[in-house]
Amino acid sequence: MPGLSERQKEILLAVVGEYIRTGEPVSSSDLCGRYRFGYSPATIRNELLTLTETGYLAQPHTSAGRIPTDAGYRWYVDKIEERRPQHDSLKMKRGEKHQIENLDEYDDIEEFFRASTELLAGIGHGLAIGGSLGDADEPLYKSGFGEILGDAEFLEPESRSRFGLLMDSIDEEMRGLARSHDLIEPQVFIGDENPIREARRYSMLVRQITRDGTLGIIAIIGPKRMRYEGALHLLRALGAPLDNL
């Protein structure tokens, strides 16, 4: 992908953030109304056109605003990682930090993974999956079905059916992923990057966690319009005090 000017980076960051927040295509008037770029509307329109031509944005309809492409989402996630402070938890909301701290109170490993999965689903806006990897017959915990199936991307019966088929094999896929990939640090897979073929319509964030000598996995799968920043902060915060790898 071609390099971006500082102005293009600023506008692309705003477009992806707005689309994640609203789920609606983002127009130049949306950006002018919400952000104080210091650029004229004509300049913003021209930069949106350039970002579309270079593959970072798409225009679903002629009269609509722009939405991120997979390349746009990838740039956004890489930018989040580039800006990441040494301690992500410092940027989390106070309530979320308190919830993470409370996870340390769980002595039972299964309760820890259950609570972690529920927290990740709420923060990341997706279906969270987690559990220990020791017993292949023990199902992994899942949380967030209700919220994700109410999302615009899943209103069509075909979309729900396709996601349901993915869930039928997700435990086996997660365990296979843990064997084949280095997941000590959080990994982000967007669209066709996803090693799970049936998940290539979505985004997935995943990492391994070790607690009290037990190896486990925690992940979130959902629309590409995912709350990447919050989910990444949580995955890193979960691993920082607990991971002995």
Rank of each mutant, 00 (worst) to 15 (best):
P2M: 09
L4Y: 15
Q8H: 15
E10R: 15
L12T: 00
L13W: 06
E18K: 15
E18W: 10
E18R: 12
P25S: 15
P25V: 04
C32N: 15
T54A: 09
P60T: 08
G65T: 07
G65N: 11
P68F: 13
A71M: 12
V77Q: 13
D78S: 15
D78V: 06
D78P: 02
K79H: 05
E81L: 13
Q86G: 04
H87T: 02
H87A: 05
L90T: 09
K93P: 02
R94N: 03
E96I: 00
E96Y: 11
H98C: 04
Q99L: 15
L103R: 11
Y106T: 00
D107F: 11
D108I: 02
I109N: 08
I109V: 08
F113K: 13
L120Y: 10
A121D: 04
G124Q: 08
H125L: 04
G130Q: 07
D135V: 05
D137E: 05
P139E: 13
P139I: 07
Y141W: 10
G146T: 05
L149S: 14
A152Q: 14
A152H: 15
F154V: 10
R162V: 08
F163G: 00
G164R: 13
M167F: 13
M167R: 10
D168R: 07
R175Q: 08
R175P: 01
A178W: 03
H181W: 14
H181M: 08
Q187G: 00
D192A: 07
E193H: 14
E198W: 10
E198K: 14
A199D: 03
S203D: 10
M204S: 12
M204H: 09
M204D: 15
M204P: 04
I209G: 03
D212T: 01
I218K: 14
A219I: 02
G222I: 10
R227W: 14
R227A: 00
Y228C: 02
A231S: 12
L235M: 07
L235K: 13
